[in-house]
Amino acid sequence: MSEVSLFESSLLSPEVQAALPAGYTLRALRSSDYERGFLKVLEVLTEVGNHTKEQYLEQFNYLLNHNDQYYTITITDDSKNVVVAAGTILVERKFVHKNGLVGHIEDIAVDKNQQGKKLGLRIIQALKFIGAQRGCYKVILDCSEKNIPFYEKCGFKHKEYEMAWYVGADAQAKL
């Protein structure tokens, strides 16, 4: 099977690529990134689970079939041919703001051995660029309190509060 990119490279910021350390590449998630450790990078965030290659490809193909909504990007260390950072912007269609679009940033992850190289900042900048290119009127994200200073450096402002309801234990107790 040939390597497939999740979306066209015209949505990637040339400024972000130029700001990366030498030997690192910004690009859309690819069908072959299972082998490059994409899921391992996400493990810095939360439990990922043991995906088979087929399960990875099933999810990749779903995103590919909805590539006007899902934009997952990676930064690779080209010398090692591995994914070292990743993030996603999900573009939501709204009725408000004249059927406007909102970008939701999710799953920002940088390999623990690659931190300190501003790769997280570059992922955020690249996702904001995609949101702007797609015509979003705003780009938002949820984060832990300890990460607020980082996202403020990325140009975000603290607004509102996040609420969560987890299906499972919460669902059984309080439907």
Rank of each mutant, 00 (worst) to 15 (best):
L6P: 06
S10E: 11
L11C: 06
L11V: 03
L12G: 04
E15L: 03
V16D: 07
Q17E: 00
Q17Y: 00
A18S: 13
A18M: 08
P21G: 10
P21F: 04
G23K: 06
T25E: 13
L26Q: 01
A28H: 06
A28P: 05
S31K: 06
S32T: 13
S32I: 02
Y34H: 11
F38M: 07
L39G: 11
T46S: 14
T46F: 08
E47K: 15
V48S: 11
G49D: 12
G49N: 14
E54Y: 09
L57C: 06
Q59K: 15
F60P: 03
L64V: 02
Y71M: 04
Y71V: 01
I73P: 02
D77H: 10
K80A: 14
N81M: 05
V82W: 05
V84E: 10
A86Q: 08
T88G: 07
L90C: 10
V91Y: 12
K94T: 00
K94H: 03
K98Y: 11
L101Y: 15
L101C: 12
H104Q: 11
I108Q: 09
I108W: 06
A109S: 13
A109Q: 09
D111H: 13
N113E: 12
Q114E: 15
Q115P: 01
K117T: 03
K117N: 13
K118P: 02
L119T: 03
G120F: 01
G120E: 09
L121H: 12
R122T: 01
R122A: 15
I123D: 00
I124M: 12
I124Q: 08
Q125G: 10
A126R: 01
A126V: 00
L127M: 09
F129Y: 15
F129W: 04
A132H: 13
R134V: 14
R134W: 04
K138W: 04
K138H: 06
L141V: 02
L141W: 10
D142V: 04
N147A: 15
N147D: 13
K153R: 14
F156M: 07
K157C: 07
K159L: 13
Y161K: 15
W165K: 10
Y166G: 07
V167P: 07
G168H: 11
G168S: 14
Q172W: 08
A173Q: 10
K174V: 00
K174A: 03
